[in-house]
């Protein structure tokens, strides 16, 4: 029903109750801008669908800021202070390049908080290894040391360092001194780069076959310092998952 038809309709209430005068003024104010010819339907529905589209866009824009909230679920083990830290030894001193014997290892938490609840978390436990002299452990710089996550990338047991044990590298055939072995299913890792060489972990597809590793440096007094890590597959690796090793 068009506007003009509506105007011609009799209004039964107007005559009986309301005063007649204001009524036409009010109705005249409203329909005057409406053109006689109704808008073509296509155009009208075009505007309607445009508005609907804009409504949908508004809705999506409202939700968009929440997408990065997904990061809430994938926080790294070491959220919190990621700072350069010296490595505390069980005797209360710090690991030093001058005193730490070659072909030996020590477990340490990183980042160290002093709170047993955090420091005992397997995902915060690392093994500092000074390589055997045959592997370059005699050097007096950071290249003599390695720090790997203790969580085996196979099934999350905690591996152990076997000093002096000789294993053959299946690729090069060379004999390596010092070995990382997991007690659960016997995965063996190459101590120089943390890549699995024997056992079930070695059968996993890269990067699911190498231990995450911390970067180390030696400060002016000779202390071994952990550099703040980036837990991505390409950098320090993801604990319990693995690390991409450049061949």
């Amino acid at each position: 029903m068009s506007q003009s038809e509506k105007k011609n309709e009799p209004k039964p209430t107007a005559s009986s109750t309301a005063p007649v005068a204001p009524k036409p003024a009010a109705s005249a104010a409203r329909p005057s801008p409406v053109p006689k010819q109704p808008l073509p339907r296509v155009q009208a529905s075009g505007r309607r669908s445009f508005l609907k589209f804009m409504g949908a866009v508004g809705g999506i824009l409202g939700i968009t800021p929440f997408i990065p909230f997904g990061a809430f679920f994938t926080a790294s083990a070491t959220t919190g202070k990621q700072e350069a830290q010296k490595i505390l030894l069980p005797d209360g001193s710090f690991a030093n390049v001058k005193t730490f014997p070659p072909d030996s290892a020590v477990i340490f938490p990183y980042p160290r908080t002093g709170d047993e609840r955090f420091d005992s978390e397997p995902f915060r436990r690392f093994m500092l290894i000074r390589l055997a002299p045959q592997e370059g452990g005699g050097q007096n710089d950071a290249s003599a040391f390695r720090a790997y996550s203790m969580v085996c990338v196979h099934l999350w047991c905690l591996w152990d360092y076997k000093p002096g044990r000789q294993v053959q590298d299946p690729k090069t055939g060379r004999t390596i001194v010092g070995n990382m072995e997991c007690p659960c299913h016997g995965s063996n890792y190459r101590v120089t780069d943390g890549v699995a060489i024997y056992g079930p972990a070695s059968l996993q597809t890269p990067p699911n076959n190498a231990q995450p590793m911390l970067d180390l440096s030696i400060d002016s007094e000779g202390f071994v310092v952990v550099n703040p890590p980036t837990y991505t597959v390409d950098r320090n690796g993801i604990i319990g998952y693995g690390r991409k090793v450049q061949a």
Partner: peptide, 18 residues
């Protein structure tokens, strides 16, 4: 861990970090 592509994200999503 064995899931292709999304493995590392999925691992952290389901198991958290630790």
């Amino acid at each position: 861990n064995a899931s292709p592509v999304i493995g590392p994200v999925l691992q952290q999503f389901i198991w958290g970090s630790g």
